[in-house]
Design a protein around this nucleic acid. Structure first.
Lengths: 330, 330
DNA sequence: CGTCACGCTGAAAAGGATTGCAGAGGCAGC
DNA sequence: GCTGCCTCTGCAATCCTTTTCAGCGTGACG
């Protein structure tokens, strides 16, 4: 059906090898011939079969991407960034959504491994063991997680939490609740740890409400526990949960931020639209996507003899309307 | 590096052909041999190279997916559905986000065409000409659009609009505004047309506010025009826009639904979280994703001699808190 | 005049898998 | 014992592209 390199060769009156060289624009071919070949190629609408090329070059021109849940607005932003950068570099992107099922992820990696030059794993829930096991099936780059010596692009979770706590302290909050996300999530542990340290330094109390699903419903479920915890402020693992908390507190007639201040993490698009608009630790999501691709490329080109590829992006507290001065304590 | 069919053949003491047959579980191979081959395959962790297979079978086991904007929560839901169904069928999914750039889409299709068995185009903004032009590069299925005789999975836009208007009528609204999305969007035209017909039948006035970006900001921009249009209700092209309208009306102190009722379309996850919770025409997004894959498969298997593959999914008005009885008119 | 270098092109192999065809061996029937 | 059939397996071709290697013709130089 579609034109192959042979068709072009025939049309241009040369051999397939010459076509290949002419289109790779290597200087090994006579300019006149090259011109003729190129014209024949466009005339026939020839596009090289990347699979066949990959077979011999070993490079597919594809990359894989695994996210736990595309319905969480955090991920589409990252995917967009990855997608955009990959397109610039003429890479195509395989996307897989594991639906928050950690046990499915190794299978997804393996299924894609042969068809890609490398993969970006976004906050995989996979165990470290599984992760290291699949890491030699293909080149991996981790986003928002750090395991062993694997290349990783992280976000400054700790810095974000410190900013949030500094903000709380400035607003004279003393007792703060933490609404955790999935227990086995790396960034969840990271944020919790940073929060522990920051509150201790600031002489504040941190009340750990527990772990909840990283979704709106999880926040709703946590809200009543927050209300009962005797805190004047709450920090949630992510914005979806913070919005859930917000909604439930409102439903119960608890004023935000007058009675309780709420802080999220991620800065998903909805956060600014909520009322009150959510104060949140903004993560550079699209940038993270783009840079994870760049990181992957650098690992791919340098080989594995280079230093462990790591990059960390800064985070920034975005103060909006859901935080305010702590109410006077009884 | 990774095991090839030759390695398995050597390990099992047979020829590559036999390995191929044994793993395809064709009945042409001796059960004893098959067992031996299969064991060797798992022992070596053999996974066939799909690219190489595709080269000879002509089927890649991949499918392509193009969406205009992953940041619009409407699309991740569809992608999830497609993704899930594709995985069940052992297909891998290429994802491309055109970033609302219609002129980029033909290029994306062509870039992917050789690597996939077929593609799902989600509400492409591409012109009909371009669409028909690329339609013979690979098998296409359109989602939420209908062009020529191309296979298409649509949602009952008209039915949804009729339900919305019936709802408005029951609430004694007489004058309704329409906040349109992209002018060149098929579903936008479709909804507008249905709305025209339905309001005419119901003896209601329809005020066309104009076309806006299908995003939150678009709704914000439209809201003041809505407020000035002397209507008691407004229907927006999608939920994001409806939420933008909601937010701006609230900011201006216009009560929803007491003074103006607001209806969206899509039923994105946020809609239920807004306050007031948004009344909306719910579209079966994940189902649409799944069924678009099924449709693609049926086209792929039946060849193109069959009847034009079409399917339409029902929509359902979801009444929540943003609609109410029309205020008494002065 | 022979040799060499050089610039360009083509033949052929390689990459991994599938599949039509043929052959090998076993067994039954005559 | 020979023939024929049947079951299973291997050979070889094929898909499309890249890349190595060799060859061809020409001009220069010894």
């Amino acid at each position: 059906m579609a034109a192959t390199i042979r068709d072009v060769a025939r049309a241009a009156g040369v051999s397939p090898s010459t076509v290949s060289r002419a289109l790779a624009s290597s200087e090994l071919v006579n300019p006149v011939t090259r011109e003729r070949v190129q014209q024949a190629a466009v005339r026939l609408g020839y596009r090289p079969n990347r699979a066949a090329r990959g077979l011999i070059t070993g490079r597919t021109g594809n990359l894989g991407l695994i996210v736990p849940d595309l319905a969480n607005p955090f991920f589409p932003s990252i995917v967009k960034g990855i997608q955009a950068r990959a397109r610039q570099l003429d890479y195509a992107v395989f996307l897989a959504d594991s639906d928050e099922d950690a046990t499915a992820e190794p299978g997804l990696v393996r299924a894609l491994a042969k068809q890609v030059d490398g993969m970006v794993l976004c906050s995989p829930r996979m165990s470290e063991t599984d992760l290291l096991a699949v890491s030699d099936e293909t080149t991996l780059v981790l986003v928002n997680r750090r395991v062993g010596a694997l290349p990783a692009l992280t976000l400054d979770n700790a810095g974000g939490m410190r900013q949030a706590i500094a903000h709380m302290q400035a607003l004279r909050h003393v007792r703060v609740a933490w609404v955790g996300g999935p227990r086995d999530s790396w960034s969840n542990r990271e944020r919790r740890r940073a929060l522990r340290a920051a509150t201790a330094t600031a002489g504040m109390d941190l009340v750990d409400i527990g772990n909840f699903a990283p979704r709106y419903e999880g926040g709703v479920a946590a809200a009543d526990l927050v209300a009962a915890a005797g805190v004047t402020a709450v920090i949630a693992y992510n914005d979806l949960m913070a919005l859930g908390v917000l909604s439930r507190l409102r439903a119960r007639g608890i004023a935000v931020p007058d009675q309780i201040s709420v802080v999220g993490t991620d800065d998903i698009p909805l956060s600014g639209m909520a009322s009150p608009a959510l104060t949140t630790v903004a993560l550079p999501k699209e940038a993270a996507g783009r840079q994870s691709v760049d990181l992957l490329m650098s690992v791919l080109h340098e080989g594995d003899d280079a230093a462990p590829a790591r990059r960390e992006l800064p985070t920034q507290l975005l103060v909006r309307d859901s935080t305010g001065v702590a109410p006077p304590q009884p």
